[in-house]
């Protein structure tokens, strides 16, 4: 029985495998969220907004579960760099904003009562610091020595996934700004912030796409899945990071910009 997806070195099989650690992880988040909702009921007139937030959080949680569980989780942990990249794109760029948006603003009120936590959070979610943390995690977890070593064990694989989720939550915090009283950045700065990530992601794309040989032993020495060559798989992963990652980030900048433009128009009484 495996608790978390990690590299096994055995031939890939499309037979379903159970990963109870993943289920437990998802269930714990779901239980925590439901407790948050119970302790912070929707105020009168905010039911529609609350439903939107719940839908967002549930979508994020379902996507997170799909990324971590069989088959994507298992393929990404030990067989295909492209599946690993799909996990990263999902857990790093799609799931966190959905989760953050899904948390009701009132749920953050207790944080304000704890100065140490507020200071820590303010430091970590400073846009410059957040960019540094997110990209440091991306670079470290994509370093061959680290990835090959950690993905060979369930704990190591879990730590990579956890590092992605936590650092991505930090990265997206200044954009989503879940605490309305503290709008961290002007929307146009948010657009610039997201665009900066487009540029900062380039080194990994170049590294994976243009390497002469496979860089990760875990994928190069894994039994092949459907005959996909290790180098083609790695190049696909690099291109996914560039194309799909850019698309997601571009979509995010568009949403931020339109949201801001609509609010501006509304404030000007044009809508």
């Amino acid at each position: 029985m495996q608790w978390w997806c990690s590299a096994q070195g055995v031939p890939w099989s499309w037979s379903w495998q159970a990963y109870p650690g993943v289920w437990l992880f998802i269930i714990l988040i779901a239980v925590g969220y439901s407790k948050l909702l119970r302790t912070n009921p929707a105020r009168p007139g905010e039911e529609s907004s609350r439903r939107r937030r719940i839908a967002s959080f549930v979508s994020g949680l379902v996507l997170l579960w799909l990324s971590l569980d069989w088959p994507i989780g298992a393929l990404g942990a030990g067989y295909l760099a492209s599946a690993h990249m799909a996990q990263f794109l999902n857990m790093g760029l799609i799931v966190p904003p959905l989760l953050l948006y899904g948390i009701p603003a009132e749920a953050f009120t207790p944080i304000g009562r704890r100065p140490a936590l507020t200071t820590t959070l303010r430091f970590l979610t400073n846009p410059i610091i957040a960019l540094v943390i997110f990209n440091a995690v991306i670079i470290v977890t994509h370093t061959p020595h680290v990835a090959d070593s950690l993905m060979a064990t369930q704990l190591g694989s879990f730590l990579i996934d956890l590092a992605w989720i936590v650092s991505a939550l930090i990265f997206w915090w200044p954009v989503i700004a879940p605490i309305p009283e503290r709008p961290w950045m002007h929307p146009l700065l948010k657009v610039g912030y997201i665009a900066a990530q487009l540029i900062l992601g380039k080194p990994i794309f170049v590294y994976l796409t243009f390497a002469e040989y496979p860089v990760y032993a875990v994928y190069e020495l894994a039994p092949r899945v459907n005959g996909i060559a290790a180098i083609s798989d790695q190049q696909t992963a690099g291109l996914m990071m560039e194309v799909v990652g850019a698309f997601i980030l571009f979509a995010a900048t568009t949403i931020v910009f339109l949201h801001w433009a609509r609010r501006e128009a509304r404030d000007d009484g044009k809508v």
Binding site: S149, L150, L155
Partner: peptide
């Protein structure tokens, strides 16, 4: 993180 990292780094 340190334990897992150290174990992995050491091995590799």
């Amino acid at each position: 993180a340190v334990i897992a990292g150290a174990a992995g780094w050491g091995c590799d």
